[in-house]
Design a binder for these strands. Structure first.
Lengths: 235, 235
DNA sequence: CAGGCGAAGATTGTATAAAGTTTCGCCTGT
DNA sequence: ACAGGCGAAACTTTATACAATCTTCGCCTG
């Protein structure tokens, strides 16, 4: 009842090779193994996955649409480098959409879903205790995605997948301290509200959760587009 | 200050050939010249635009992501056929996003923008008087897009472009009467609220506008996925 | 020695050709 | 006469080859 978005298996989403490439690169970016600005050569990726450039190109174009890769004409594909302005837009959009998503999730709550949520929280705690930063980053994103799946709203899910992916890059670029990407406690609180079907509490907790994440970012005010060089080197 | 999403001209959005194909097909779908379910052969389109299948394929894949084309493995591309469930999701999302968009538009109001809005309303009225259904459909969608551009929020704009495109198909499929797709009067009311920077009125009018459009649709209750065949033929 | 010009190398953009799959007509057998 | 299966045609999918473009490094000049 979860992953059944399309009636016909037209997009197995993991069986065909282009999806494998897409998800492999996505995972690498979301786990902060590929840093913003990294060149994504077609031949290079193609050799890794044993695929021709045709398939690699298809996968990269999908990632462009997801906002985590940017393609510059005749220059190639790179891991996207969101600007502070992008970051503010992403979080504004999340503050608009996610409260509504948890609202719907409260209606869809069931023993099976609660199991999945609890299991996920356990994984998050374990990764955090283990000090596995990469897993923590990935899991905290997946939590939000899980709630979106729970809402049963495929459009919201699609939008949020894009927003989460971009958030991961944003947090990597603009986080002030080395705080864990997402407070696991917050997630636990949200799950508790969902379990009680307390929509108001769920919305409020999700909103404050997102606000807190954004507050931990350093997004300088001017519409600073690119070339952080002058700022960083500050000769 | 409006269309400046990227600092470098990496996506002129109209100069390269794949964009021309994408926008040509998009326009045809939005103007209801291509009906849901229509086969979009790669050779056929390629010959029309004088491009190879490689470019056509790229354009079609982008349209898949916009939700107005669906590709079935080894079968080809077709104009999407949104289900009633899709329709409800699209309008729910619009009711969430668009009030926020007009809110922001109220802040961005300027003489130049008001000119564009007024000019657009004039075009809409003219098309309606002329009885040009195709132009009316296209223009009523473009009004919402214009407001989204005005908001200056590129993510909301991207989301809304997708929602508007799908709405066009939905209206074509499920409209009860042959009422004009979108009440021009409503649009005028929204513009008036924007001009007065009256956020509350703008939000309220946008919301009621969307609600009214959806109310004119016939979306049967059951989670009817595809195969309308049994319903229609009802042997 | 700094700066600019130019050719070589590498990489992407595009087109074309080979391979696999589905569909539809047609034929055969009952 | 009809059901079932075979086969060819058309299409999509994938791979490869060619062309255009940009980057880089060396070299020359001032």
């Amino acid at each position: 009842m979860a992953a059944k978005t399309r009636p016909k298996p037209d997009t197995p989403d993991a069986s065909d090779r282009v999806s494998r490439i897409r998800e492999g690169v996505t995972a690498a970016i979301l786990e902060h193994r590929l840093l913003p600005g990294t060149k994504l050569g077609e031949d290079e990726i193609g050799e890794i996955y044993g695929a021709s450039r045709t398939l690699v190109r298809t996968a990269l174009q999908q990632l462009v649409h997801e906002g985590i890769v940017s393609i510059e004409k005749n220059r190639g594909a790179f891991v996207a480098r969101p600007t502070p302005a992008d970051a503010r837009e992403v979080f504004e959009a999340r503050r608009l959409i996610e409260p509504t998503i948890v609202d719907r999730a409260c209606e869809a709550v069931s023993p099976a879903w609660l199991d999945r949520l609890r299991h996920h929280l356990a994984e998050e705690r374990e990764a955090e205790l283990r000090g596995d930063a990469r897993a923590s980053v990935r899991l905290s994103g997946e939590f939000h995605r899980l709630v979106a799946e729970m809402s049963g709203h495929s459009i919201y899910l699609g939008f949020l997948k894009e927003l989460i992916a971009r958030s991961s890059l944003i947090i990597l670029l603009y986080r002030r301290h080395d705080t864990p990407a997402c407070g696991t406690d917050h997630h636990a609180g949200i799950v508790a509200a969902i379990r009680k079907r307390d929509k108001a509490a769920a919305r409020a907790q999700m909103l404050s959760h997102l606000t807190e994440i954004e507050a931990e970012l350093f997004l300088k005010d001017p519409a600073a587009d690119e070339t952080r060089l002058a700022d960083v080197l500050g000769a």
